[in-house]
């Protein structure tokens, strides 16, 4: 059930994308997302989609996994797609009372659907190829300048690491407690919404209690190992920019320039 969700799951490997520095991956992802929205017509969007497909191939992770991660947000994609059908101008193709479908609307719907699908795909590339600890390390490095504004960057990164680390633990714990309450005759599979929510109380309370217990234990263990925040802390695995990162940067610059050029020379789709 919960375990089947692949969105944001690290898959170890040794592809060229895996070897990219986590910092460049994050920065390039942000740039990529911006340019997916900058792309204003089919030609430039196609350029973005095809180049992301190329990167997907380079990760050497089964395409099935990407499709699975898209399944989770399939509803959002379909919903925005359908909504866009009704908002558009141009030649009316079909009309019923206040609803009218235009060729512009259909085109908008298709455009938005491709856009979102590409968006999810590139985001999956980051989470599939970067281990959670690299990811939070990189975020900490990237956010470092914010310390000027008294943002507790290290603390935020540490909280994220711990939260990610404990997701599977909590899932397992929830499973255990659910079984224990089922053994005492808890009925979580039938009844209305209210009844089902009430049936969850015997699971949620022990789960909360044990989360707090774990938090206390972890804090104690960290203090015993003399953890006192990020000041003066060094890392065993240093993040390093390499030639691969340079190649990645150049690749993206080429694609982004292409998108801008296509935007200038072709007509915009969204009306």
């Amino acid at each position: 059930m919960v375990r089947d969700i692949t969105l944001g799951q690290y898959m170890p490997g040794n592809s060229i994308i895996h070897r990219l520095d986590a910092r460049s991956k994050i920065m390039l992802l942000i740039a990529y997302i911006v340019f997916i929205f900058v792309a204003g017509n089919y030609v430039s969007l196609l350029l973005m989609t095809l180049s992301s497909l190329l990167i997907v191939m380079l990760t050497r992770i089964k395409f099935m996994m990407y499709l699975k991660s898209m399944k989770v947000i399939l509803f959002v994609v379909i919903f925005t797609g359908i909504l866009n059908i009704f908002y558009g101008t141009g030649n009316v193709l079909w009309e019923w009372q206040f609803i009218h479908i235009t060729d512009g609307g259909l085109s908008n719907a298709l455009f938005v659907t491709i856009r979102i699908a590409t968006l999810v795909m590139v985001s999956s590339i980051l989470t599939f190829t970067t281990s959670p600890s690299d990811l939070t390390d990189a975020l900490e490095k990237i956010m470092k300048p914010l310390t000027v504004f008294h943002v507790k960057v290290h603390e935020i990164a540490m909280m994220m690491t711990i939260a990610l680390r404990f997701i599977p633990v909590l899932l397992e714990e929830a499973d255990k407690i659910m079984n224990a309450q089922k053994a005492r005759g808890a009925d979580m599979e039938s009844g209305g919404v209210i009844k089902r929510i009430k049936a969850l109380i015997p699971v949620l309370i022990p789960l909360f209690v044990s989360s707090f217990r774990r938090a206390t234990d972890l804090a104690m263990a960290m203090e015993c190992r003399c953890y006192n925040g990020g000041n003066g802390r060094t890392r065993m695995k240093q993040l390093k920019f390499t030639v691969v990162d340079l190649v990645g940067l150049l690749f993206c610059i080429v694609i982004f320039t292409g998108v801008i050029l296509c935007n200038i020379y072709f007509k915009s789709v969204m009306i």
Binding site: I177, A180, A183, R184, I201, P202, I205, P206, V209, S210
Partner: peptide, 12 residues
């Protein structure tokens, strides 16, 4: 009836 390991964590 089934009593699990560390059943004290199921009290609510």
């Amino acid at each position: 009836g089934m009593v699990f390991q560390y059943p004290e964590y199921q009290l609510f």
